Amino acid sequence: MAGHETHYTLPRAAFDKPVKLLIVVAPYYKDIADDLVAGAKAEIEAAGGSWDLVEVPGALEVPTAIAIADRKSNFDGYVALGCVIRGETTHYDTVCNDSSRAIQLMGLQGLCIGNGILTVETRQQAEVRADTEQMNKGGGAAAAALHLIALARKWGGQSKGVGFNTILLAEQNDGSSTA
């Protein structure tokens, strides 16, 4: 009986220096995506962090957007959000497996990513998981990213700034290149 289970939740991550996350969402199911984003924003703000938000066409594009942002920008971590509801074909399996695998591989390379891409059988399951008053999986994904950022800082110090790459800004301002 899953409805009667209790789960332990880690205390909210705390930071002594600013933290900025990029929320990447695939709003295919807009109402579900909006709830996921609301949960993520609230959790980041409750931890004293800030965020930027980008939308991509679908769950398969979420990891690509994160990879681009990691190369071109300077975020401390990422929140991957979206929803995949099982349909009549095997496309569901491909989207679920490939998006999850790509996010996991980036995490193993050191990126701090909270995966909140819902993979569900029905719309009702998605609604419950996205709802900030029920399972709040968007908030959970943000909390996961924040905890990973805290670990990365604890073990290696802060190696990035807050949401922008100063070298790229300097190049844009004076037209020079460091390459």
Rank of each mutant, 00 (worst) to 15 (best):
S50F: 00
S99E: 09
T64I: 14
K41E: 10
P27R: 03
T89K: 10
G48I: 04
L22W: 01
C83A: 15
S73E: 14
C96Q: 03
S73F: 12
E61G: 02
V24P: 00
M106T: 01
D70R: 13
S99Y: 02
E55N: 15
H91L: 14
I32T: 12
A46L: 10
D16N: 13
P57E: 10
C96R: 07
A13G: 12
I68S: 10
E61D: 15
R71K: 14
R71Y: 10
V25F: 01
A80R: 06
V25Y: 00
M106E: 12
V19R: 03
V37R: 00
R86M: 10
G82P: 11
I66T: 03
P18M: 02
D93V: 10
G87H: 06
V25R: 01
G39K: 01
I66M: 06
D16L: 07
L53H: 03
A69M: 10
N97Y: 13
A47Q: 03
G48Q: 02
K41H: 03
P57V: 11
V62H: 01
M106H: 05
A13F: 11
I23A: 03
G58S: 12
G49T: 07
R101D: 10
E43S: 11
V37K: 06
L81N: 02
G49F: 05
A13W: 11
I23P: 01
D34Q: 14
I103A: 02
D76Q: 15
T89L: 08
T64W: 10
A46P: 02
R101W: 05
A33C: 08
E43Q: 14
R86K: 15
I23M: 01
A67F: 07
D35S: 14
F15P: 12
L36P: 09
V79L: 03
N97D: 12
V25D: 04
S100F: 06
E88W: 04
